[in-house]
Amino acid sequence: MKTRVPSIVSVFRPLALLSLLLAMSGCTVYQSIGKSVGSYLHPVSGHDFVHIANEKWDHRNALLYFYRPHSQWAADEIEAPSVYIDDTHYFNIRNDSYTWLEVSPGERHIAMRRPLLGLEGLNSFSLSLIADATLKVEPGQIYYLRYNELSEPARRHPELAPDDPLAQGALQLVTRDYAMQAEEIVSTRFLNSDLLAPNHAATSIVETTEDIDYERQLTRLEEERELEIERLKEAGKYESASWFWPFGGGPTVPLETDREIRKLEREYARLERERERQEEAESGGGWWIF
């Protein structure tokens, strides 16, 4: 009698369907189904480490390098941990590998989660949250983030406080000098994207991070606006709506937060126009069917 062994596709298909149903219900699902294969099953085969050329990224932005030095633990891994920037999944980092992302300046939230058959968490719950940190990045700067669950860097980053999340644990920010040592990033291979382990790294995510920053600032200003209105009510500078005309009423003085919101919206509109001009320039200003 033959025994039928379930294929990888048959195992992951119901998990992917479950993830889709949860996402449709409004839940935030953290998952890397079909992307989490580890080095034991699929070793990294990219080229040896090399910095990307200076002309390949805009120095008004920042560059993040992620790397994972070789260890037997990581080499025997069935599933590799996921890396998220600003709550968006970009790649799963396997043994002896590196990759990079170009991001806009500002505060970037970095998280790592360990999957179980690709599933990682739901809303605020995570099966295994490896790292949860915020890194403030500056224009033109390059940052090196080292992941190793067995050994921490021999030297802490001098610009980080001892209690900073990126100065302790498995994921740490290290200096360029430290990363350039033997057995560090220089000994790793590029985390290429392929059919068995696709990823969305080694690219610019500047537009995405700019949009996230806009949404964050707008949300913050809207919350501050509510607080400002409460202060004006207490100070007697707010008129309530009449019972017969519910659309009236409001503050009797201009709101500072309204001014800041209008400024933010103008800046974002200018940014969108700049993107459109750049897209037109890159496309040659149009297309020609002949």
Rank of each mutant, 00 (worst) to 15 (best):
residue 48 D to S: 15
residue 90 Y to K: 06
residue 264 L to T: 04
residue 9 V to G: 04
residue 106 G to T: 02
residue 48 D to I: 13
residue 224 E to K: 04
residue 14 P to T: 04
residue 39 S to P: 05
residue 69 P to R: 10
residue 95 N to G: 08
residue 56 K to M: 09
residue 118 G to L: 04
residue 242 S to N: 08
residue 108 R to W: 03
residue 156 R to W: 06
residue 125 F to Q: 00
residue 169 G to T: 10
residue 29 V to Q: 00
residue 194 D to C: 09
residue 224 E to P: 03
residue 78 I to G: 07
residue 32 S to Q: 09
residue 200 H to R: 15
residue 87 D to M: 08
residue 192 N to M: 12
residue 219 T to G: 07
residue 269 A to E: 14
residue 57 W to N: 07
residue 79 E to F: 01
residue 29 V to T: 00
residue 273 R to D: 11
residue 137 V to F: 03
residue 253 V to C: 05
residue 43 P to S: 12
residue 188 T to P: 13
residue 41 L to D: 04
residue 249 G to L: 00
residue 99 T to R: 03
residue 69 P to K: 13
residue 173 L to N: 08
residue 122 L to M: 05
residue 101 L to C: 11
residue 222 E to A: 13
residue 11 V to E: 00
residue 123 N to Q: 08
residue 75 A to H: 02
residue 33 I to Q: 03
residue 283 S to L: 05
residue 56 K to W: 11
residue 289 I to A: 12
residue 186 V to Q: 02
residue 19 S to F: 00
residue 184 E to M: 06
residue 62 A to L: 12
residue 143 Y to E: 09
residue 15 L to W: 10
residue 200 H to C: 06
residue 171 L to P: 07
residue 96 D to S: 13
residue 197 A to E: 00
residue 175 T to R: 04
residue 204 S to L: 05
residue 215 E to Y: 07
residue 286 G to Y: 06
residue 44 V to P: 04
residue 103 V to N: 01
residue 165 P to E: 02
residue 260 E to T: 05
residue 182 A to S: 14
residue 86 D to R: 02
residue 236 G to I: 09
residue 21 L to H: 07
residue 163 D to E: 13
residue 162 P to W: 14
residue 83 V to F: 08
residue 46 G to R: 06
residue 112 M to I: 05
residue 80 A to C: 04
residue 41 L to K: 11
residue 232 L to Y: 11
residue 183 E to S: 12
residue 166 L to F: 10
residue 84 Y to A: 05
residue 40 Y to M: 11
residue 186 V to L: 01
residue 7 S to K: 02
residue 249 G to Y: 01
residue 194 D to P: 00
residue 200 H to W: 04
residue 21 L to I: 06
residue 145 L to S: 10
residue 183 E to Q: 15
residue 22 L to I: 01
residue 111 A to C: 08
residue 23 A to E: 12
residue 245 W to F: 13
residue 285 G to R: 06
residue 158 P to F: 10
residue 140 G to K: 09
residue 14 P to N: 10
residue 236 G to Q: 11
residue 18 L to C: 00
residue 152 E to Y: 06
residue 13 R to D: 07
residue 126 S to A: 10
residue 10 S to A: 14
residue 239 E to R: 15
residue 140 G to H: 07
residue 122 L to P: 04
residue 137 V to E: 13
residue 73 W to Y: 14
residue 71 S to D: 07
residue 258 D to Q: 01
residue 158 P to W: 09
residue 130 I to C: 11
residue 222 E to G: 12
residue 210 E to I: 08
residue 142 I to W: 12
residue 227 L to P: 12
residue 216 R to Y: 11
residue 4 R to C: 03
residue 59 H to I: 06
residue 245 W to N: 15
residue 44 V to G: 06
residue 253 V to L: 01
residue 72 Q to T: 07
residue 237 K to N: 07
residue 48 D to R: 15
residue 236 G to P: 07
residue 168 Q to S: 11
residue 151 S to M: 14
residue 74 A to V: 05
residue 261 I to E: 02
residue 94 R to Y: 09
residue 114 R to E: 10
residue 200 H to E: 09
residue 267 E to A: 15
